[in-house]
């Protein structure tokens, strides 16, 4: 229940920061570009764009949001309310995932001429969006300025993006299927091109497990660094 309240706060905050308007403009541009591509190219470009922007957008924005809450002191106040850190993280993740889902669906619906497995697309966006937003949380616990955030992002970026090249076939590339980013990308591609039921269930379960583990870890790190200011037990 508190999470819903926090979600309301986050959406209001993001609305006032102009996220949605900027995002609408970007989506329109994507739509324009995709519509100009030859249909062979657009078949590959659409899933890549959906993965490359809507499902990663949280990584980009979460740093700014948390830093601003730190500077304005809102975060300092939130920790003395009954709102749990878990709920705080969750509401931010949900709000940014919703943004990604909506953007992804709009891009897919307006540009792709053949049928899409919508449920699969949404699950794929969700799994990678949760993952990238969590990476963003981990990044921002260290940084106090935007430029610092960009630098601190780099290692996490590697963790998130590099394994995605495992989609290109090479021996043992399935080992990279523990990375939710890879799984998300595979599911998104699956939504467009089809994917076996066994793979879907394996990818989803694997993605959920990794994300939950990462969530717990993030909650711990966040609590130690932000709430308790780095002082241990």
């Amino acid at each position: 229940m508190r999470t819903i309240k926090a979600l309301k706060a986050d959406v209001l905050f993001q609305l006032k920061q102009g996220f949605y308007i900027v995002y609408i403009v970007l989506i329109l541009i994507y739509m324009l570009i995709i519509s100009q591509l030859p249909s062979d190219a657009s078949k590959i470009a659409i899933p890549l764009i959906i993965f490359g922007d809507p499902s990663i957008v949280g990584f980009f924005f979460i740093g700014g949001i948390v830093m601003l809450e730190k500077i304005q002191g809102v975060l300092q106040y939130i920790v003395v309310t009954p709102l749990r850190i878990r709920e705080y993280l969750l509401s931010k993740i949900i709000s940014l995932s919703i943004l990604g889902e909506i953007a992804g669906i709009i891009i897919g619906a307006t540009t792709y001429r053949e049928s899409i497995n919508w449920l699969l697309l949404m699950v794929g966006i969700l799994i990678s969006s949760v993952f990238f937003t969590l990476l963003g949380f981990l990044t921002v616990t260290r940084s106090d300025s935007v430029n610092e955030y960009f630098i601190d992002m780099i290692p996490y970026m590697f963790i998130g993006i590099l394994p995605c090249f495992s989609l290109i076939d090479f021996p043992y590339n399935w080992l990279f299927n523990i990375f939710p980013s890879v799984l998300g990308l595979r599911l998104i591609f699956g939504a467009f091109y089809g994917i076996s039921a066994a793979n879907v269930s394996f990818f989803i379960i694997s993605g959920i497990i990794t994300n939950i583990l990462l969530f717990n870890y993030t909650e711990n790190v966040f609590e130690n660094r932000i709430v308790y200011g780095g002082e241990s037990k």
């Binding site: 920061q17 102009g18 900027v22 403009v25 980009f60 700014g64 601003l68």
Partner: peptide, 27 residues
């Protein structure tokens, strides 16, 4: 006027690069 808006607009500025290459679309 703050970081978050800055990040939002910086993202939006990606449009500038696209517009710089817009002749490719031949529209």
């Amino acid at each position: 006027d703050d970081k978050v808006k800055g990040l939002t607009y910086a993202k939006g500025f990606g449009v500038f690069t696209i517009l710089a290459l817009i002749d490719l679309l031949k529209l």
